[in-house]
């Protein structure tokens, strides 16, 4: 018999939880949120699901895709779904760390230092083309992403909750860019790849965008918009999703398998295991389940690990991608056995 790691251990004879959170209401709210975003960002259902998983798991997302696939629209739609603040920073080569986090300035009239908070003090932060800024500026995000606070002039200032960074980067333009350091990459819960929509989706997208419907919807508050409090409650539900010992073991075995593979130069660390479990739980919640399945772990394994691993040179020469190598590694790990 396996253990189950949930704060309120349910008895095995009951057919439904008799106490605790209202899972059904949460499921309904999430379904509405998802539908709303999908109506705005047409044809990217998988991307929306993964971004919502990250939002629920209080993680950050690195979005990668060619220009014009709606990365900014996604973030705006997401911010519009709950009554949170949204800020955007366009990363440029001359951007300074203080431009991101804020700084202390001497107030002449009052003869004191005044802290000017940077754009990171928001609920949703879009770091557009993050790899265009030098490492010094990218490092300004390290503290705020991990600790959710900014230290200015020796004073730690917490960011509003929920706080989520969505960074975008362009995979094809490499001229004048600075690759993200591994410590920075590790702080993103998921790396989401945005690909071109299907024909049907693009037809609907083109019709909606050309008629101005999307812009109109973004300007007015959406029906069923969540409050910040509701979102925080949903986030609080994620750790309460039941996780069997076998599923936990499966997630850890998946992450550890990357360390034994000769195809990888850089393997995923323990933060990947933690992130994978968080993402799996959020995925289960998004699917309307109060328990996580091995399928949740499997579905989240590639988005969680693809930016945390580095391919060996011969794999790169062979044209393999982190996704294809990870898929091979996942297929080599046995699913949970009971």
């Amino acid at each position: 018999m396996s253990d189950i790691t949930t704060p309120n251990q349910t008895t095995q004879n009951e057919t439904a939880p008799t106490s605790g959170p209202n899972w059904q209401a949460a499921t309904a709210q999430l379904a509405q949120l998802r539908n709303t975003v999908n109506r705005l960002l047409i044809g990217q259902e998988n991307v929306v699901d993964q971004v919502m998983v990250a939002l629920l798991a209080s993680g950050h997302v690195l979005l990668e895709g060619v220009p014009g696939l709606g990365k900014t629209l996604l973030v705006r739609a997401l911010a519009n779904c709950f009554s949170g603040n949204f800020r955007r920073i366009q990363f440029t080569p001359d951007l300074m760390p203080a431009d991101v986090t804020g700084h202390a300035i001497y107030h002449m009239a009052e003869s004191r230092f005044e802290v000017r908070r940077g754009p990171v003090f928001t609920n949703l932060l879009l770091a557009d083309e993050i790899n265009r800024a030098p490492a010094k500026t990218q490092a300004a995000l390290l503290e705020v992403m991990q600790e959710k606070q900014v230290t200015i002039d020796g004073e730690a200032l917490p960011t509003p909750r929920p706080f989520m960074v969505l960074a975008t980067q362009n995979p094809i333009e490499q001229e004048g860019t600075y690759p993200l350091p591994e410590a920075e990459l590790d702080r993103f819960l998921l790396k989401v790849l945005i690909d071109f929509p299907s024909l049907d989706a693009e037809l609907r997208l083109a019709a909606a965008a050309s008629s101005g419907r999307i812009d109109r919807q973004l300007e007015q508050p959406l029906p069923g918009q969540l409050t910040i409090e509701q979102l925080r409650q949903l986030q609080a539900l994620v750790p309460r999703v039941a996780l069997d010992q076998q599923v936990l073991s499966y997630a850890v075995r998946l992450v550890r398998a990357t360390r034994e593979s000769s195809q990888l130069r850089r393997a995923a660390g323990p933060r990947a295991s933690i992130g994978l479990l968080q993402a799996a739980r959020a995925n289960a919640l998004l699917a309307g389940r109060e328990f996580a399945l091995p399928d949740d772990v499997k579905a989240m394994a590639i988005p969680v690990m693809r930016h945390r691993v580095g391919l060996s040179p011969d794999m790169e020469i062979d044209g393999e991608t982190p996704d294809s190598v990870l898929a091979q590694i996942i297929d080599s790990v046995e699913a949970p056995r009971l």
Partner: peptide
């Protein structure tokens, strides 16, 4: 349900 949620 019974294996992962321990709910029969």
């Amino acid at each position: 349900q019974i294996a992962y949620a321990h709910r029969a």
